[in-house]
Write a protein that binds this DNA or RNA. Structure first.
Lengths: 228, 228
DNA sequence: AGCTTGCATATTGCATGCAATATGCGGTTT
DNA sequence: AAACCGCATATTGCATGCAATATGCAAGCT
């Protein structure tokens, strides 16, 4: 028999599941930077044996979320203000590239979808619903990346974004900055509609630089520990 | 007793060693794209047990050099012309960023070192010594990255570069293109000396785009297999 | 004949056991 | 009293064994 859409059955292996769970714990800050990750402890927590756990730790180390000290175990990777600054520098370039690509490659449908997300985001802003605002915000940037049609860019972006979200998670915004951010997003959409690649790239680059300042200011208040 | 410089003793764990060896085999093309990586086979080759090998494969998969098919083993990641194009798009942005940063942050010593490498590279070009040319070429780009003083940029660059070197490895250059590349390098140095961030960024971006075309042309001759 | 079905084999995924290395503490020495 | 040394403990790294899943082939069915 022919099936309309071959549903890719949930093929779950333990280590993949553990990678996802641990990544979430780290990104959400429940496992704090520099916190020690004992194998025994985590094995009991997830009720698995050491083999899949160790494989998961290796993967997260390759992603930069975990540091592996030979013969001395694993720790959540530290996150200094310098690290954040460096990540934002790279992210700004990646976002600028995604803007260039999206401006030339985006379809009308994708553009309409982003318009809708933008409207929803502005709505969340009006209601001062920060979590919803963030979610839509992230979704918009994600769609711009997708519209660029470059899977490698997407991979690299996702990797860095995962590491940065740790810092952004607790980061609040001033009322002024929030309004400015919304305005910048409006400029983005205008550039996208105009297919203005260079303009969109510039806006995104600038947008990221400002976001960086906000996060750094918040970090200075002593939210995240520096590496030993 | 006090030691002048705490020599970081070579602490080698098997899986790290295996990661390095496998990565080299894949990058150098001895393990071809889409080639199957049986655990038994590799265990015998390296004379180790399956545990460290599996950990190594997970790491390489996170790096994008290996594909893991659940319950069906591992294969060397495929490398289509599209993949190469996408990687070059990102690399061009990263190189441009590295140029911007380097132009503003490089020290006189670093600049002198790059000058020396450039001279050596030109020397290799005059003798048509391609391997030596490539080595110096890579070293120069590496130094520019280092001069940018952004470890995150360096990480991301290294990761992508590892994946691209697979394609570049066999790529030859036409006489014309080779000369043009040398001239572009001279322009780079001029921009670096002038601390011209925007100019260097533009040169590097353009340089990468052209390199991409060369590699793609070579790839079209059917060097690397496409993914299934 | 082509397709499906069932079993035998091979390979992967996970758990556990053993050896090697690091950590912490008590005793000893200066 | 402070520092050093050595041993006991805990943790990590690697090897191996068992269960689960995929692959290949041959027999049976339509």
């Amino acid at each position: 028999m022919t099936v309309t859409a071959t549903s890719p059955i949930r093929r779950l292996t333990l280590h993949d599941e553990v990678v996802a769970r641990l990544r979430e714990l780290i990104v959400r800050g429940e496992l704090r930077p520099n916190e020690r990750l004992g194998e025994r402890e985590l094995c009991e927590r997830f009720e698995i044996s050491r083999t899949p756990l160790r494989e998961a730790l290796k993967v997260l180390a390759a992603e930069g979320l975990v540091e592996l000290l030979p013969h001395r175990g694993a720790r959540v990777a530290g996150l200094t203000a310098g690290d954040v600054q460096h990540m934002f520098e790279v992210m700004a370039s990646l976002e600028a590239l995604s803007g260039e690509l999206a401006a030339t490659r985006i379809t009308a449908e994708e553009l309409a979808e982003i318009d809708a997300l933008h409207a929803a985001m502005v709505d969340a802003y009006r209601e001062r619903d920060l979590p919803r605002y963030f979610a839509h915000n992230q979704a918009i940037h994600e769609r711009i990346i997708l519209a660029g049609r470059n899977p490698v860019l997407r991979e690299v972006y996702q990797g860095l974004n995962g590491r940065m979200r740790r810092a952004r998670y607790a980061a609040n915004m001033s009322e002024d900055r929030w309004l400015a951010a919304v305005r910048e997003h409006e400029a983005m959409l205008a550039a996208l509609h105009a297919r203005d690649a260079a303009g969109l790239a510039a806006i995104l680059r600038d947008h990221l630089h400002k976001k960086c300042e906000v996060v750094l200011a918040h970090l200075a208040d002593g939210d995240l520990a520096a590496p030993s």
